[in-house]
């Protein structure tokens, strides 16, 4: 380049700014392009496609129905569909019960483990055991335990003389809901316990001592000092678990499959049934989009609470 006459450089510059330019993308864009392509292929396009299909009467059995555009009719049907709202309500109910009970139990567990002076590592590991099992297996296990004939629970209750009949755990609607709740809580209380334990362990000791000197009873120390500090950690666990339960499917699918007679139907068992068994994928997608709003709503609420709690304790993270 150094030896070239001035005219040569000018000409090559002209050539660049001429018809060659459209082919030369800027380097940053070029380097990000693979990511864009992959993301588009695995996320954006399927998402848009499913969104589009929720505006069609698409059935898996009749592929050409995807080309029929029916506007918001699927959504209109949802709003008047009693089964959908019952499933929706049941999901919210499951979410409420499970989150609250898991938080109380997790808090208790975390505080007990934190008190342990010896073997805390082992206890922490043991505490996480339930999370190491596949939810499907947890479902099978609890399905067996709650079985009205051969199940462990009825057997135990009968041997203890607490009842002499076979309690229809997985058949009665309310009892089945409780059974599912128990399985859900057993498998995931550790999430709360781990987060709250992390909070307890990160907590400075001195404010607790200051509270004791300031005249607090152990309960007051917990209520006014420990809990405000641990709260943000509990909210993180809440966010994670609310997303988890809002998309709950596996345990319910195995234990009751939404039955009997839709008595334990929750959002995703209903969506899966509508999409695959009834093959009404368009309607199922409309339901799914609606369900996602539920998740987003909970996430927003908890994140807001989290931010509030964090600024309250002056956290630097």
């Amino acid at each position: 380049m150094a030896g070239r006459p001035d005219g040569g450089t000018t000409r090559s510059r002209e050539a660049k700014s001429g018809f060659l330019k459209p082919w030369k993308l800027p380097a940053p864009f070029l380097l990000l392009l693979p990511t864009f392509i992959v993301l588009a292929a695995v996320v954006v396009i399927p998402l848009l496609l499913s969104l589009y299909s929720s505006f069609t009467p698409f059935r898996l059995t009749r592929p050409d129905t995807i080309w029929t555009f029916i506007g918001l009719r699927n959504y209109e049907r949802l709003f008047t569909d009693w089964d959908f709202w019952v499933a929706f309500g049941r999901t919210v109910l499951l979410l409420t019960f499970a989150l609250n009970l898991e938080m109380i139990l997790g808090l208790g567990l975390a505080m007990l483990v934190e008190k342990a002076t010896r073997g805390q590592r082992i206890l922490r590991t043991i505490m996480m055991f339930p999370m190491m099992f596949s939810p499907v297996l947890v479902g099978f296990q609890f399905k067996f335990m709650f079985n009205d004939n051969v199940g462990l629970i009825n057997n135990a209750l009968q041997s203890l003389g607490l009842t002499d009949r076979a309690i229809p755990w997985l058949i009665d609607g309310t009892l089945a809901f409780i059974a599912i709740l128990v399985a859900e809580i057993w498998s995931s209380t550790a999430v709360f316990a781990i987060f709250i334990l992390a909070g307890l362990m990160a907590m400075p000791r001195e404010p607790l001592e200051a509270a004791r000197v300031d005249g607090c009873t152990p309960w007051q120390t917990f209520r006014y000092v420990t809990w405000p500090f641990v709260m943000p950690f509990a909210f993180i666990a809440m966010t994670i678990r609310s997303l988890d339960i809002a998309r709950a499917y596996d345990i319910v699918k195995i234990m009751t499959d939404g039955g009997p007679a839709k008595r334990t139907e929750i959002l995703w068992t209903l969506i899966a049934r509508t999409g695959y068994s009834d093959a009404r994928m368009g309607l199922a997608n409309a339901m799914a989009y609606f369900a996602i709003f539920l998740s987003i709503l909970f996430t927003v609420i908890f994140f807001r609470k989290l931010a509030q709690a964090r600024s309250q304790i002056g956290a630097e993270w």
Binding site: P204, E206, P207, E209, A210, A211, V213, Y224, V225, P228, F229, Q312, I313, G314, A315
Partner: peptide, 11 residues
């Protein structure tokens, strides 16, 4: 008691 690390209630 006044502590070395102040021990104020952060919230």
């Amino acid at each position: 008691m006044v502590f070395q690390s102040y021990a104020l209630y952060p919230h």
